[in-house]
């Protein structure tokens, strides 16, 4: 961190950020063009901005319904995963149980499972349980993705909490459960919150299960819904651009508010400190 940033460095930064953001910029500029203009030139800026594409994007397909579905499914998934994972991660990092390595190994292996390897039995199960085209039909399979991820990240965060506080709580006669509730949880809350954001994003972005299990349009989630904007014969790029902008806005807000936490969560599992 002793290097100084010169003017060349800032030019590099601007170019880098521009390249990373370019698809978004272009898609946004397209979304405010009148639909007729998209197909005949490559001008960056339109002379007559219009919201027609947004109108079409919302009215041709139930975009807000997709967003609501994604929101409900991701929230339920996050709550369930964090509930089970925080208890398990606490025991794994704090309590004197055996086979910790084996258990963590199983959890890590589970987080690496290719979804395609489990999709057909899950599909059979969800169909047999009558949960196709419902929120629970997605929440249950999403446990496969979210629970191992949550335990893995939470275990790292819990490990960083100083032991001394817990020891003194024990000396004062607190039970392990009281220690968890009164000492560990308040200290761990930031980590839990970060894990929650990451699990939420993972559930929001999931595609394969959502594609196969919720096949009726009103139960589709955002990623699947967006991918169905293109029909076999026409590709309404105006609608797609507008829809992309609309579904990206919540993510941009989430990232802007929580960027520090997200980075901390992402890097916690991979870096030793």
């Amino acid at each position: 961190m002793n290097k100084r940033a010169g003017i060349g460095f800032y030019i590099f930064l601007v170019v880098f950020v521009f390249f990373v953001m370019f698809p978004f910029i272009w898609v946004f500029l397209t979304s405010i063009k009148p639909p007729g203009e998209i197909f005949n030139n490559f001008r960056w800026f339109t002379s007559s901005p219009s919201l027609e594409s947004y109108d079409n994007a919302i009215n041709n397909r139930p975009l807000f319904r997709y967003m609501w579905n994604s929101f409900v499914v991701s929230t339920l998934t996050t709550l369930i995963a964090i509930g089970f994972a925080s208890i398990a991660a606490y025991a794994l990092t704090r309590l004197p149980i055996r086979f910790k390595g084996v258990i963590l190994g199983i959890i890590l292996a589970a987080s690496m499972f290719p979804q395609i390897a489990i999709i057909s039995p899950i599909y059979n199960f969800v169909t047999a349980a009558g949960l196709r085209n419902s929120y629970m039909g997605l929440v249950i399979p999403y446990i496969t993705v979210s629970l191992p991820l949550a335990i893995w990240i939470l275990a790292t965060f819990f490990q960083k909490i100083p032991w001394e506080l817990e020891e003194s709580a024990k000396l004062d006669g607190a039970s392990p459960f009281q220690t968890f509730r009164k000492i560990i949880f308040p200290l761990a809350a930031p980590g839990v919150f970060t894990t929650g954001i990451l699990v939420f994003i993972a559930a929001w972005n999931e595609y394969l299960f959502a594609l196969t299990i919720n096949t009726s349009d009103e139960w589709r989630t955002v990623p699947v819904g967006i991918s169905f904007y293109q029909s076999q014969f026409t590709i309404p790029w105006g609608d797609i651009s507008a829809a992309t902008v609309l579904v990206t806005i919540p993510i941009v807000i989430l990232v802007l508010i929580f960027q520090r936490r997200i980075v901390a969560g992402l890097t916690s599992g991979s870096v030793k400190e």
Binding site: V17, V20, M21, P23, F24, V27, I201, W204, N205, Y207, V222, P223, V224, I226, S227, Y229, Q230, I240, T244, V247, T248, I251, V252, L254, V255, L256, Q259, R260, I262, V263
Partner: peptide, 18 residues
């Protein structure tokens, strides 16, 4: 940091459409 996180955070399907 934010500009770097946004491509990572958006759904892959949305990125693929873009």
């Amino acid at each position: 940091r934010a500009s770097v996180l946004i491509p990572w955070a958006i759904p892959t399907a949305v990125a693929a459409m873009m």
